[in-house]
Amino acid sequence: MTAPFSLLMSVYAGDDPEHFERALSSSTRAQTVPPAQVVLVQDGPLGEALEAAVLAAVEASPVPVETLRLDSNQGLTAALTAGLERCEHDIVARMDADDISLPERFARQLPLLEDGRDLVGGGMLEFADEGGRVLAQRTPPIGAEQIRDYARFHQPFSHPTVVFRKRAVLAAGGYQPMGRMEDYWLFARMIAGGAEVDNVAEPVVMYRVGTGAYSRRGGREQWRSEMLLQRAFRRIGFTSRREYLRNVAVRGVYRFVPEGLRTTLYRRFIARGGR
């Protein structure tokens, strides 16, 4: 008998109605171990089509859905912070509005939390936005020691896959603004604070790769977020000076290489947990 848990999702006007319906259904109805509660944050006005899809999906959900509407689009950090307050259970699973949870996702992850972990991620399958063809598999670092070492260079968790203890997230200060890297910043603070962490090697989520998925990982804005993050890591002592210089050099260059090369580097190294 697994502990009850909440599913936390955010949806905004840029999300696709069909993708949202599939994301919610795959994380509730299709799960061998479904959540006990869904907290759905509507991050600003959604538009007629998406609003209708949300209403229909909520009505059809076999799991009770609490909908929280924000008057304006405030971004993911604010949406998840507001939604986390409404989660009734200490164990909370994250899900994005355009991905697909595999049926055994929570059955694989929850035993690790019940065994004492505070944060558990998992592998992902990247699939094409059109046609559904699997493009690559992301295998994360496994085990607390490898995750802690890897985290000083790169994000050790895929945010759409994580399940965590609400009290551990709040103890670390919750989601905080950090450019486009608020998830990495949160998980680093959790690790630095002594949270017990792990990953499931097997894929638990199918991650939709649409047009521009890898172009968004580059550019000047992403580089600015990178520099903010690396300085924050040094400020809390998460990285050494040597690690800071390495990260600025390697990760900074990565933000400006051509998109094709960035995709290849990500899939061959970073997406394999650094192996």
Rank of each mutant, 00 (worst) to 15 (best):
D183M: 13
V163T: 04
A128T: 02
A171D: 15
Y184K: 06
F164T: 12
D183V: 01
G173D: 04
A107P: 12
G131T: 10
G194D: 11
R133D: 15
M181N: 04
M181T: 07
G121H: 05
A201N: 02
W185K: 00
A107F: 09
G121T: 05
E130R: 14
R133E: 15
R105Y: 10
F106L: 05
V134A: 09
L110F: 05
A192T: 12
L186S: 02
R105I: 00
M190K: 13
Y175M: 05
S101T: 05
H154K: 03
Y184Q: 04
M181R: 07
T139V: 12
V200D: 00
G173W: 00
A151T: 09
I91P: 05
A151F: 01
D149S: 05
A136Q: 03
E130Q: 11
A97Y: 08
R189P: 09
S158H: 13
V163I: 14
R133W: 03
T139F: 00
G123H: 03
R108L: 14
P203G: 00
G194S: 12
V92K: 06
D198G: 05
G174I: 14
G174Y: 10
R94V: 13
A136G: 06
L102W: 04
L110C: 10
F157H: 00
E114W: 08
F153S: 13
D129S: 15
D99M: 05
M124T: 10
L112S: 07
V163W: 01
W185L: 06
I142K: 02
A93Y: 00
V169H: 08
A171H: 07
L170V: 07
G131P: 14
S158T: 09
A128E: 15
V120K: 01
M95K: 07
M206V: 05
E126I: 08
V197M: 01
D183Y: 10
A172N: 10
A188S: 10
M95R: 15
A171S: 15
T161Y: 11
H159D: 04
L119P: 06
G123P: 06
Q109V: 10
R189K: 13
G116Y: 09
F187M: 14
P111K: 08
R152H: 11
A168S: 15
S101Y: 01
G143F: 09
P160T: 09
I142P: 11
L135A: 11
M206K: 00
V162H: 04
Y207F: 12
E202H: 02
G179F: 01
P141E: 08
G121L: 11
D149K: 09
M124L: 10
R180E: 12
F153A: 13
D198S: 06
Y175E: 09
F153K: 14
G193C: 04
R152S: 02
R167S: 15
A171P: 01
V204Y: 04
D118R: 09
Q137S: 13
P103T: 06
P203C: 06
R138V: 09
E130N: 13
A195F: 14
